[in-house]
Protein backbone atom coordinates (compact mmCIF):
# COMPACT_ATOMS: atom_id res chain seq x y z
CA UNK A 1 0.00 0.00 0.00
CA UNK A 2 1.14 3.52 -0.72
CA UNK A 3 1.79 5.42 2.46
CA UNK A 4 2.18 9.14 2.95
CA UNK A 5 2.55 11.66 5.75
CA UNK A 6 1.49 15.23 4.96
CA UNK A 7 2.70 17.95 7.38
CA UNK A 8 2.11 15.68 10.34
CA UNK A 9 2.49 16.86 13.95
CA UNK A 10 1.95 14.62 16.92
CA UNK A 11 1.81 16.02 20.45
CA UNK A 12 1.65 13.86 23.56
CA UNK A 13 -0.54 15.16 26.38
CA UNK A 14 -1.43 18.46 24.69
CA UNK A 15 -2.44 21.43 26.84
CA UNK A 16 -0.85 19.98 29.96
CA UNK A 17 2.47 20.78 31.63
CA UNK A 18 3.76 17.50 30.13
CA UNK A 19 2.99 18.53 26.55
CA UNK A 20 5.59 17.07 24.25
CA UNK A 21 5.72 17.42 20.48
CA UNK A 22 7.12 14.11 19.26
CA UNK A 23 6.70 14.73 15.52
CA UNK A 24 6.63 18.08 13.78
CA UNK A 25 5.75 18.90 10.20
CA UNK A 26 6.71 15.48 8.90
CA UNK A 27 6.06 14.71 5.25
CA UNK A 28 7.10 11.75 3.13
CA UNK A 29 5.63 9.42 0.54
CA UNK A 30 6.42 5.75 0.10
CA UNK A 31 5.32 3.73 -2.94
CA UNK A 32 3.66 0.34 -2.46
CA UNK A 33 6.23 -2.46 -2.24
CA UNK A 34 9.06 -0.31 -0.87
CA UNK A 35 11.35 -1.53 1.92
CA UNK A 36 11.79 1.55 4.10
CA UNK A 37 14.28 1.96 6.94
CA UNK A 38 13.60 4.58 9.60
CA UNK A 39 16.68 5.62 11.54
CA UNK A 40 17.35 8.23 14.19
CA UNK A 41 18.73 8.31 17.71
CA UNK A 42 16.61 7.68 20.81
CA UNK A 43 13.82 10.22 21.08
CA UNK A 44 13.86 11.21 17.42
CA UNK A 45 10.24 10.14 16.93
CA UNK A 46 10.65 6.74 15.24
CA UNK A 47 8.18 4.90 17.47
CA UNK A 48 5.62 7.70 17.24
CA UNK A 49 5.79 7.54 13.44
CA UNK A 50 5.18 3.81 13.26
CA UNK A 51 2.28 3.95 15.70
CA UNK A 52 0.48 6.06 13.10
CA UNK A 53 0.81 3.34 10.49
CA UNK A 54 -1.91 1.16 12.03
CA UNK A 55 -3.88 3.95 13.65
CA UNK A 56 -2.72 3.44 17.23
CA UNK A 57 -2.11 7.18 17.11
CA UNK A 58 -3.79 9.74 14.91
CA UNK A 59 -2.04 12.96 13.98
CA UNK A 60 -2.53 16.13 16.02
CA UNK A 61 -2.14 18.05 12.78
CA UNK A 62 -1.82 17.04 9.13
CA UNK A 63 -2.80 13.85 7.37
CA UNK A 64 -1.53 10.27 7.22
CA UNK A 65 -2.66 8.11 4.30
CA UNK A 66 -2.28 4.34 4.31
CA UNK A 67 -3.69 3.14 1.01
CA UNK A 68 -7.30 4.39 1.06
CA UNK A 69 -7.35 5.02 4.80
CA UNK A 70 -6.90 8.56 5.96
CA UNK A 71 -5.92 9.52 9.48
CA UNK A 72 -6.66 13.13 10.38
CA UNK A 73 -7.19 14.97 13.68
CA UNK A 74 -10.81 15.78 12.76
CA UNK A 75 -12.50 12.45 12.45
CA UNK A 76 -12.19 9.00 13.93
CA UNK A 77 -11.43 6.36 11.34
CA UNK A 78 -14.44 4.05 10.97
CA UNK A 79 -12.97 0.77 9.85
CA UNK A 80 -9.90 0.79 12.10
CA UNK A 81 -10.08 -2.98 12.52
CA UNK A 82 -9.71 -3.43 8.78
CA UNK A 83 -6.68 -1.12 8.78
CA UNK A 84 -5.09 -3.15 11.57
CA UNK A 85 -5.66 -6.33 9.63
CA UNK A 86 -3.78 -4.89 6.68
CA UNK A 87 -0.91 -3.37 8.66
CA UNK A 88 0.94 -5.88 10.84
CA UNK A 89 3.20 -4.46 13.55
CA UNK A 90 6.01 -6.43 15.16
CA UNK A 91 6.83 -4.46 18.30
CA UNK A 92 10.14 -4.59 20.15
CA UNK A 93 10.67 -7.88 21.95
CA UNK A 94 7.43 -9.32 20.51
CA UNK A 95 7.98 -12.56 22.44
CA UNK A 96 6.86 -10.67 25.56
CA UNK A 97 3.36 -10.63 24.06
CA UNK A 98 2.99 -14.41 23.74
CA UNK A 99 0.30 -15.55 26.11
CA UNK A 100 -1.53 -18.66 24.90
CA UNK A 101 -1.03 -22.24 26.10
CA UNK A 102 0.27 -23.46 22.77
CA UNK A 103 1.96 -21.88 19.81
CA UNK A 104 -0.94 -22.96 17.62
CA UNK A 105 -3.44 -21.04 19.76
CA UNK A 106 -1.18 -18.04 19.94
CA UNK A 107 -0.85 -17.80 16.17
CA UNK A 108 -4.59 -18.39 15.72
CA UNK A 109 -5.52 -15.52 18.05
CA UNK A 110 -5.08 -12.76 15.44
CA UNK A 111 -6.88 -14.35 12.48
CA UNK A 112 -9.70 -15.51 14.80
CA UNK A 113 -10.17 -11.95 16.03
CA UNK A 114 -10.40 -10.76 12.47
CA UNK A 115 -13.12 -13.32 11.79
CA UNK A 116 -11.30 -15.96 9.73
CA UNK A 117 -12.91 -19.43 9.71
CA UNK A 118 -11.33 -22.50 11.34
CA UNK A 119 -10.28 -24.10 8.05
CA UNK A 120 -8.58 -20.97 6.77
CA UNK A 121 -6.83 -20.48 10.11
CA UNK A 122 -5.44 -24.03 10.04
CA UNK A 123 -3.99 -23.43 6.59
CA UNK A 124 -2.54 -20.07 7.59
CA UNK A 125 -0.84 -21.56 10.63
CA UNK A 126 0.98 -24.17 8.55
CA UNK A 127 2.01 -21.52 6.05
CA UNK A 128 3.33 -18.98 8.56
CA UNK A 129 5.25 -21.61 10.52
CA UNK A 130 7.10 -22.30 7.28
CA UNK A 131 7.59 -18.59 6.65
CA UNK A 132 9.34 -18.09 9.98
CA UNK A 133 11.27 -21.38 9.74
CA UNK A 134 9.72 -23.10 12.72
CA UNK A 135 9.08 -26.86 12.56
CA UNK A 136 5.39 -27.86 12.66
CA UNK A 137 5.99 -30.20 15.60
CA UNK A 138 6.34 -27.14 17.82
CA UNK A 139 2.69 -26.15 17.33
CA UNK A 140 1.41 -28.09 20.33
CA UNK A 141 4.19 -26.86 22.62
CA UNK A 142 3.92 -23.95 25.01
CA UNK A 143 5.54 -20.82 23.57
CA UNK A 144 7.41 -20.49 26.86
CA UNK A 145 9.33 -23.73 26.27
CA UNK A 146 11.08 -22.28 23.24
CA UNK A 147 14.45 -20.55 23.01
CA UNK A 148 14.50 -16.74 22.76
CA UNK A 149 14.98 -16.76 18.99
CA UNK A 150 12.20 -19.32 18.48
CA UNK A 151 9.82 -17.40 20.76
CA UNK A 152 10.36 -14.31 18.67
CA UNK A 153 9.68 -16.26 15.47
CA UNK A 154 6.47 -17.63 16.96
CA UNK A 155 5.33 -14.10 17.85
CA UNK A 156 6.14 -12.89 14.34
CA UNK A 157 4.19 -15.85 12.92
CA UNK A 158 1.17 -14.51 14.82
CA UNK A 159 1.49 -11.17 13.03
CA UNK A 160 1.97 -12.80 9.63
CA UNK A 161 -1.04 -15.07 10.17
CA UNK A 162 -3.34 -12.09 9.66
CA UNK A 163 -1.83 -11.75 6.16
CA UNK A 164 -0.94 -8.06 6.31
CA UNK A 165 0.03 -5.99 3.28
CA UNK A 166 2.23 -3.67 5.30
CA UNK A 167 4.72 -5.02 7.80
CA UNK A 168 6.13 -2.70 10.46
CA UNK A 169 9.21 -3.93 12.33
CA UNK A 170 10.49 -2.15 15.43
CA UNK A 171 14.07 -3.27 16.11
CA UNK A 172 13.28 -6.88 15.25
CA UNK A 173 16.78 -8.25 15.86
CA UNK A 174 17.51 -6.69 19.29
CA UNK A 175 18.94 -9.22 21.73
CA UNK A 176 19.57 -11.96 19.16
CA UNK A 177 22.97 -13.48 18.56
CA UNK A 178 24.76 -12.56 15.32
CA UNK A 179 23.47 -15.55 13.36
CA UNK A 180 19.97 -15.03 14.75
CA UNK A 181 20.11 -11.41 13.62
CA UNK A 182 21.17 -12.31 10.11
CA UNK A 183 18.62 -15.14 9.78
CA UNK A 184 15.85 -12.86 11.02
CA UNK A 185 16.68 -10.07 8.55
CA UNK A 186 17.00 -12.56 5.67
CA UNK A 187 13.57 -13.89 6.62
CA UNK A 188 11.96 -10.44 6.50
CA UNK A 189 13.70 -9.64 3.24
CA UNK A 190 12.40 -12.86 1.70
CA UNK A 191 8.86 -12.22 2.98
CA UNK A 192 8.98 -8.65 1.73
CA UNK A 193 9.58 -9.90 -1.80
CA UNK A 194 7.50 -13.08 -1.85
CA UNK A 195 4.43 -11.40 -0.30
CA UNK A 196 5.00 -8.10 -2.11
CA UNK A 197 4.81 -6.27 1.20
CA UNK A 198 5.47 -2.67 2.00
CA UNK A 199 7.93 -2.92 4.88
CA UNK A 200 8.93 -0.36 7.50
CA UNK A 201 12.02 -1.24 9.52
CA UNK A 202 12.94 0.84 12.55
CA UNK A 203 16.57 0.11 13.28
CA UNK A 204 19.72 1.27 15.01
CA UNK A 205 21.77 -0.79 12.59
CA UNK A 206 22.95 1.33 9.69
CA UNK A 207 24.38 -1.87 8.22
CA UNK A 208 20.89 -3.40 7.98
CA UNK A 209 19.41 -0.19 6.57
CA UNK A 210 22.11 -0.18 3.87
CA UNK A 211 21.76 -3.86 3.08
CA UNK A 212 18.00 -4.32 2.98
CA UNK A 213 16.21 -1.01 2.47
CA UNK A 214 15.30 0.69 -0.82
CA UNK A 215 14.64 3.96 0.95
CA UNK A 216 15.86 5.42 4.24
CA UNK A 217 14.24 8.18 6.28
CA UNK A 218 16.46 9.86 8.86
CA UNK A 219 14.60 11.47 11.75
CA UNK A 220 15.92 14.03 14.19
CA UNK A 221 13.93 15.74 16.94
CA UNK A 222 10.66 14.57 15.43
CA UNK A 223 11.28 15.91 11.99
CA UNK A 224 12.71 14.59 8.74
CA UNK A 225 16.44 15.24 8.61
CA UNK A 226 17.02 13.57 5.24
CA UNK A 227 15.73 10.76 3.06
CA UNK A 228 16.79 8.89 -0.04
CA UNK A 229 18.54 5.80 -1.27
CA UNK A 230 20.65 4.29 1.52
CA UNK A 231 23.77 4.17 -0.66
CA UNK A 232 23.45 7.95 -1.16
CA UNK A 233 22.19 9.02 2.27
CA UNK A 234 24.97 7.17 4.07
CA UNK A 235 27.64 9.09 2.18
CA UNK A 236 26.68 12.21 4.13
CA UNK A 237 28.81 11.35 7.14
CA UNK A 238 29.22 14.86 8.57
CA UNK A 239 25.50 15.60 8.63
CA UNK A 240 24.64 12.20 10.08
CA UNK A 241 27.22 12.64 12.82
CA UNK A 242 25.58 15.94 13.69
CA UNK A 243 22.39 14.06 14.56
CA UNK A 244 24.37 11.47 16.49
CA UNK A 245 24.20 8.76 13.88
CA UNK A 246 27.05 6.85 12.39
CA UNK A 247 27.52 5.51 8.89
CA UNK A 248 27.87 1.83 7.94
CA UNK A 249 31.32 0.35 8.49
CA UNK A 250 31.85 -0.43 4.83
CA UNK A 251 31.37 3.20 3.79
CA UNK A 252 33.47 4.38 6.72
CA UNK A 253 36.43 2.27 5.68
CA UNK A 254 36.16 3.49 2.07
CA UNK A 255 36.29 7.10 3.30
CA UNK A 256 39.34 6.31 5.39
CA UNK A 257 41.07 4.53 2.53
CA UNK A 258 40.56 7.65 0.45
CA UNK A 259 41.74 9.98 3.19
CA UNK A 260 44.84 8.02 4.25
CA UNK A 261 45.84 6.22 1.07
CA UNK A 262 44.41 8.53 -1.57
CA UNK A 263 42.47 5.71 -3.21
CA UNK A 264 38.93 6.43 -4.24
CA UNK A 265 36.50 3.49 -4.37
CA UNK A 266 32.75 3.78 -4.32
CA UNK A 267 30.22 1.60 -2.57
CA UNK A 268 27.84 -0.14 -4.99
CA UNK A 269 26.55 -2.88 -2.74
CA UNK A 270 29.53 -5.13 -3.39
CA UNK A 271 30.32 -8.03 -1.05
CA UNK A 272 33.26 -7.83 1.34
CA UNK A 273 35.11 -10.21 -0.96
CA UNK A 274 34.57 -8.04 -4.05
CA UNK A 275 35.59 -5.02 -2.05
CA UNK A 276 38.79 -6.81 -1.02
CA UNK A 277 39.53 -7.51 -4.71
CA UNK A 278 38.95 -3.87 -5.68
CA UNK A 279 41.16 -2.72 -2.81
CA UNK A 280 43.91 -5.09 -3.83
CA UNK A 281 43.82 -3.93 -7.44
CA UNK A 282 43.80 -0.27 -6.44
CA UNK A 283 46.60 -0.64 -3.91
CA UNK A 284 48.73 -2.70 -6.27
CA UNK A 285 48.22 -0.25 -9.13
CA UNK A 286 49.11 2.70 -6.92
CA UNK A 287 52.88 2.21 -7.20
CA UNK A 288 53.02 2.90 -10.93
CA UNK A 289 51.64 6.41 -10.44
CA UNK A 290 54.03 7.44 -7.73
Amino acid sequence: MEISFKNVDYTYQPNTPFEHKAIRNLSFKVASGTFVAIVGHTGSGKSTVIQHLNGLLTPTYGEVSIGDYKLTPEKKIKNIKDLRKRVGVVFQYPEHQLFEETIEKDIAFGPKNFGANEEAIKERIIEVMQSVNLPEQLLTRSPFDLSGGQMRRAAIAGVLAVDPEVLVLDEPTAGLDPRGQRDMMEMFYRLHHSKKLTTFLVTHSMEDALEYADHVIVLDKGTKFMEGKPSEVFLRQKELNEVQLDIPEVIKILFKVKEKLGISLSYKGQSTYDLACELKAALGGGSTNE
Partner: peptide, 14 residues
Protein backbone atom coordinates in the same frame (compact mmCIF):
# COMPACT_ATOMS: atom_id res chain seq x y z
CA UNK B 1 26.12 -18.92 15.55
CA UNK B 2 28.55 -16.05 16.05
CA UNK B 3 30.37 -13.78 13.66
CA UNK B 4 33.36 -11.47 13.42
CA UNK B 5 33.27 -7.67 12.97
CA UNK B 6 33.24 -6.16 9.48
CA UNK B 7 36.88 -5.09 9.69
CA UNK B 8 38.00 -8.61 10.57
CA UNK B 9 35.93 -9.96 7.67
CA UNK B 10 37.49 -7.56 5.20
CA UNK B 11 40.96 -8.40 6.50
CA UNK B 12 40.14 -12.08 6.11
CA UNK B 13 39.02 -11.63 2.49
CA UNK B 14 42.06 -9.51 1.70
Amino acid sequence: GLDIPFIAKLADDL
